[in-house]
Simulated assay, not measured.
Amino acid sequence: MSQTLNVALAAYGMSGQIFHAPLIAAHPHLKLACVVHRSGTSAKEHYPGVKVVRHYQQVLDDPDIHIVVVNTPNALHYPMARDALRAGKHVIVEKPFTTNITDGRDLIELAKHQSLMLTVFHNRRLQSGFKT
């Protein structure tokens, strides 16, 4: 892989700051390109090259964003992931994937239809308790 993929975070709360942003920034083929920050600018302070936007729609409208990380409250996972897929973005969703199985199946089918990657971020999947 030689192409750098631009990633947007849907939020810059605890998970954005502690889990997602550092992992994205450390990967040689990913660039933390955009963060939705409803107020404040701490993402810009931590990652000076990042674009800070106030509205999620700005991420969806940006043709330079390849991947969207949906790291918002659980009830928003489905509509935000759905909208990102419809906008032609690959999507990473925090757990829980969705709040019900119907929404989960809908996202999987939409991703297949759009030929896009869709996955769940599960940062503890390799820990011994989960592996057992």
Rank of each mutant, 00 (worst) to 15 (best):
L118Q: 03
R124W: 03
Y12H: 04
G104C: 10
D61Y: 00
A81N: 01
H20G: 04
S115F: 11
K31E: 10
H55F: 07
L9M: 10
N6Y: 10
G49P: 00
P48D: 07
K95E: 11
Y78R: 01
P48H: 06
K51Q: 11
N100L: 10
I101A: 08
L110S: 14
R105C: 09
A11K: 06
E94T: 14
N123Y: 08
L23F: 00
G88A: 10
R105A: 14
T102I: 09
Y56F: 15
A26S: 14
G88I: 05
Q57W: 03
Y78P: 02
K131E: 09
V36D: 06
H77P: 07
P73V: 03
A87Q: 05
S115Y: 11
S42H: 01
Q57G: 12
R105V: 14
N74P: 00
Y47S: 13
A26H: 04
L126H: 06
V93D: 02
P79R: 08
V91R: 01
A84D: 02
H46F: 12
L30E: 03
V35R: 01
M80Q: 14
L118P: 02
R124C: 12
V7N: 11
Q114N: 14
A43Q: 02
V69K: 02
A33I: 00
R125A: 12
K89G: 09
N71L: 04
M117Y: 13
M1W: 00
H113P: 00
F130N: 13
T72A: 06
Q17G: 03
P63K: 10
T99M: 10
H27C: 05
L110V: 07
Q114D: 03
A111S: 14
A10G: 13
A87S: 14
H66V: 07
L118A: 06
K44H: 12
I18W: 05
P73C: 07
L60P: 04
S115P: 02
T4C: 07
S128H: 08
S39W: 10
A26N: 10
S128N: 09
H77Q: 03
Q58V: 06
Y12Q: 03
I18T: 13
A111W: 02
A33L: 00
L5V: 08
L116K: 09
R125P: 00
